[in-house]
Design a protein around this nucleic acid. Structure first.
Length: 861
RNA sequence: GGACACUUAGUUCAGCGGGAGAACGCUUCCUUCACACGGAAGAGGUCACAAGUUCGAUCCUUGUAGUGUCCACCA
């Protein structure tokens, strides 16, 4: 016997461990068709948040649903080493332990980093278990596993040999805090307040000067020319002149170039080739020197005279003062401009000329774009995110993949100590003593991009790779399309010649109640574990997957979690009731149209339509829509109507009692199986209380639509019955009568009804009733329906009765007017679909009949 | 400067070319044998605005306004 109240803690107790031990999570049943997903590997940097909970629950629903449908489901878990993020955290920890990180060796650091990894992996495992995720732990991977290292090296070498990876001196975004290069998308452009500073660049051998503006005066130490537009009449006479750099007194040329926008600023632009991508192009074009002026921590280097060693922003202020004292400072204007910040630590990044490794993106992007036009395309859900992807691919720049870190895949490039010859190879050169390996590691996303096939054993031709790749589906949030999804697509296409996954399901971000992003600085984050402790993991899972439409963001609202928990309690109690009415030694009856009552037929029809709708939406990954179909069935059809009405059979001495119990059990089992992917714990608990259950709900198959139990005709009396009962109840409330007050009812029927109709109407109105063909001679409140009408005789005053009738008459008239308006429109008759016209005609007739009846009635008051 | 979303009940959100839906909240009533974490019955919306397409627009198109997000090297 189930407890009176659903207690999540008791229900969840021990189930996950059992499932895991029984091996239900392990893929490999070759008799079935494969269905595979890889988890987006969480970073080993911290706790999982609600976003992870959302992301993994969606995947778990898919996995459990597909498993029930008879697939051999592989959901492969794993974690990401998260280069910069982890290294930063480990370093911070070492500092807090009092360790001098400037003296630490690479090897020592890695030892600490691995210890950190093991600790956080443990946390993540605990949270996965808490969420109830159906992960195949026998295949778990980590991005720094030996197998994955091999894959990374092989891909690097392959791309290098294909000419798709090169080493070059280019302007990259430099993170002076982490002291590493970043890729473009690791830089976040924020609109910051700043100043535009105007300086005098004196023309050599002249009293003239050019007015030159900049937002970063400290970079003036790297200026190698001033550019003007060749068509700018203001500067024509200076084309072959030189100017004096007010920062360091150096003499630099004026170079006319079309790049300069005449209309912008003063039309004269200072050019700093080593610290600005556009200036770099100009510098290359004219063969200019490209002096770098910053140290790795963005302090000023020896090129900056007396400012050497000074922080870049301090230098800016000091330099300004000095130039001003020389009279070469003109003015500054407050401006809002986009400034690049590091995604990881929010510091202002510095564009710097630097030798790094790059992936040549054009050919890879073209391949990916082309693939989206073919039949082997990756299916984005919702589809609009394909645009996001394609737009990025179409405008992509080369990808800087080297990072000046220790935690990551070390670049497999070796430099000859004497000749400087570069060897790029999966394994070190034989005479390694003559070589030194590149110190840098690869961008974290380089290895993540290989995740769907590297985790399955690539480059080995493993059975898993053969069977599960390409994967069926990938689930991720839209903020990671560029970082990860697109990189998996182009890497996979280039390296394996196959797409990485067939479907990519994109969801949104979790926000707080006010719609703000959850963040540490706002302190508005919600720990999934706290929610689970309060409401249970099933309620959290249900909330996360039923409160947004695909691709949309979602607000975390605690009341909604509570409301989900109430729903589960409702299911729990309906199950408790159904199980309580199953007699000792009960045997299911074989159901057929001959032994079912009209009410049974109605319920089974509703059930099958529900299964149909739920399944259709599950297939579309629309879990919100799917669940709401089930929700309506549970509350309205099953609990409010059938469950209550079937008591007439169960508490009476009806011969059809076993049919009713069979129907109840059938509906209950279907509900349990349909809700199971969302809320596996409560589903398992209830399932194991059903008669004739298997060892676990995890071994069950998904409910199928049974067409023979969808009845198209003969259910009108149920509709009529519900309408009449509702009106009687409403009548009692508005007339302040007790719910069980006995009323005099007279009804007329346009259809034939079963015996149950009388029983149920009687029981649920607490009233006797009489059937008559003509109600027009009777006094009382008249109610008209599609298939009949009803009079409640009562002590209501004539005025009230007349008011009510007039209201109804007005309603019927407006309906008639609407119908006639449509039907008198020749265009409607000619152009609207036939069925529409027919339904409209039928409606008109119905309302005309109702009107007639009401008017007759009104006359007699 | 581009791109993509969003604007529907008090609030959070669904939905749809042919009579506006849910949850929470609100009102009235009910502890009768699954559930008061409940039941019954209600109130509450010019579906942002404007034009167009259509027999018919909350829905499609275009424009406007507002909100949000992403992309973009303008000194």
């Amino acid at each position: 016997m189930l407890d009176k109240r659903y207690s999540p803690k008791d229900v969840e107790q021990g189930k996950y461990e059992t499932w895991k031990e029984k091996g239900y999570f392990t893929a490999g049943d070759k008799s079935k068709n494969p269905f595979s997903m890889v988890i987006p590997p969480p970073n080993v940097t911290g706790k999982l948040h609600l976003g992870h909970a959302w992301n993994t629950t969606i995947q778990d629903i898919i996995a459990r649903y597909k498993k029930m449908q008879g697939y051999d489901v592989l959901w492969l878990p794993g974690m990401d080493h998260a280069g910069i993020a982890t290294q930063a955290k480990v370093m911070a920890k070492l500092v807090s332990m009092g360790i001098d990180v400037t003296k630490i060796s690479r090897e020592e650091f890695l030892k600490y980093a691995w210890a950190w990894k093991h600790e956080y992996a443990e946390n993540i495992h605990n949270q996965w278990a808490k969420m109830g995720l159906m992960l195949d732990y026998s295949r778990e991977r980590f991005t720094l596993d030996e197998g994955l290292n091999l894959a990374v090296r092989k891909v690097f070498v392959d791309l290098y040999n294909k000419g798709l990876i090169y080493q070059g001196e280019r302007i990259i975004s430099w993170d002076p805090v982490q002291q590493t290069a970043l890729s473009n998308i690791e830089v976040i452009h924020q609109d910051d307040e700043g100043y535009m500073y105007y300086f005098k660049y004196h023309v050599v051998d002249s009293d003239d000067y050019l007015e030159v503006a900049t937002t970063r005066p400290e970079t003036m130490f790297g200026d190698t020319c001033v550019c003007v537009n060749p068509n700018d009449e203001r500067y024509l006479k200076y084309h072959h002149c030189k100017v004096i750099n007010p920062a360091n007194g150096e003499i630099i040329p004026i170079i006319p170039d079309e790049y300069v926008d005449i209309a912008f600023g003063t039309g004269a632009m200072k050019c700093t080739p080593a610290h600005d991508p556009n200036d770099f192009n100009i510098g290359k074009k004219y063969g200019l020197e490209m002096p770098t002026i910053f140290n790795k921590d963005a302090s000023m280097n020896e090129k900056c005279g007396k400012y050497v060693g000074m922080d870049r922003f301090e230098c800016r202020e000091a330099l300004l003062k000095d130039i001003e004292s020389r009279g070469d400072f003109i003015k500054k204007e407050k401006i809002i401009h986009a400034v690049g910040h590091s995604q990881r630590n929010n510091c202002v990044v510095e564009p710097m000329l630097s030798k790094q490794w790059f992936v040549k993106m054009k050919p890879l992007a073209e391949e990916a774009i082309k693939n989206q036009q073919g039949k082997d395309r990756v299916n984005f859900i919702p589809q609009r995110f394909e645009n996001t992807f394609l737009q990025w691919m179409n405008n992509i720049e080369d990808w800087c993949i080297s990072r000046q870190l220790w935690w990551g895949h070390r670049i497999p490039a070796y430099y000859h100590k004497v000749t400087g010859e570069v060897v790029v190879s999966e394994n070190p050169p034989k005479d390694i003593e003559n070589y030194v390996q590149d110190n840098d590691v690869l961008d974290t996303w380089f290895s993540s991009g290989l995740w769907p096939f590297s985790t399955l054993g690539w480059p080995e031709k493993t059975e898993d790779l053969e069977r599960y790749f390409p994967t069926s589906c990938l689930v991720t949030a839209y903020d990671i399309i560029f970082f990860w999804v697109s990189r998996m697509i182009f890497q996979s296409l280039n390296i394996t010649d196959r797409k990485p996954f067939s479907d990519v399901v994109i969801h949104g971000l979790v926000r707080d109640e006010l719609g703000r992003k959850m963040s540490k600085s706002l302190g508005n984050g919600v720990d999934p574990i706290d929610v689970i402790d309060k409401y249970g993991v099933d309620a959290l899972r249900y909330f996360l997957t039923t409160n947004s439409t695909p691709g949309q963001d979602m607000r975390y609202i605690e009341e909604k979690v509570a409301s989900g928990a109430n729903y589960l309690n409702k299911i729990w109690n309906s199950a408790r009731y159904v199980l309580s009415v199953v007699p000792e030694g009960f045997k299911e009856v074989k159901l057929s149209k001959d032994n079912l009552s009209v009410l049974d037929k109605w319920l089974l029809t509703r059930l099958n339509l529900t299964i149909k709708n739920v399944t259709a939406n599950m297939e579309k990954y629309d879990f919100n829509a799917a669940s709401s179909h089930l929700y309506n069935f549970v509350y309205d059809d099953f609990c409010s109507q059938y469950l209550e009405m079937s008591k007439v059979k169960l508490y009476g001495d009806d011969a059809s009692k076993n049919v009713t119990v069979t129907v109840l059990l059938k509906a209950l089992k279907s509900i349990i199986l349909l809700i199971y992917p969302y809320t596996p714990f409560i589903a398992e608990e209830l399932y194991l209380n059903l008669p004739n259950h298997l060892e676990s709900v995890m071994l069950e198959s998904y409910p199928k639509v049974e067409k023979e139990f969808i009845f198209k005709d003969g259910l009108e009396e149920i509709e009529l019955l519900f309408d009449m009962i509702r009106d009687v109840r409403n009548y009692k409330i508005t007339n302040q009568l007790a719910p069980n007050a006995k009323l005099g009812l007279t009804i007329s029927l346009k259809i034939k009804v079963s015996n149950d109709f009388a029983t149920l109407l009687n029981r649920f109105t607490f009233s006797e009733f009489e059937v008559k063909d003509d109600l027009s001679t009777l006094s009382g409140d008249l109610f008209t329906y599609n298939y009949g009408s009803m009079i409640i005789s009562s002590g209501v005053s004539k005025e009230e009765a007349r008011d009510k009738l007039e209201k109804e008459i007005a309603f019927e008239k407006s309906e008639i007017k609407r119908s006639e308006g449509m039907l008198n429109n020749p265009n409607f008759l000619a152009k609207a679909p036939k069925e529409k016209v027919e339904t409209e005609k039928a409606k008109l007739k119905l309302h005309q009949d109702n009107l007639k009846e009401l008017e007759e009635k009104l006359k007699k008051i």
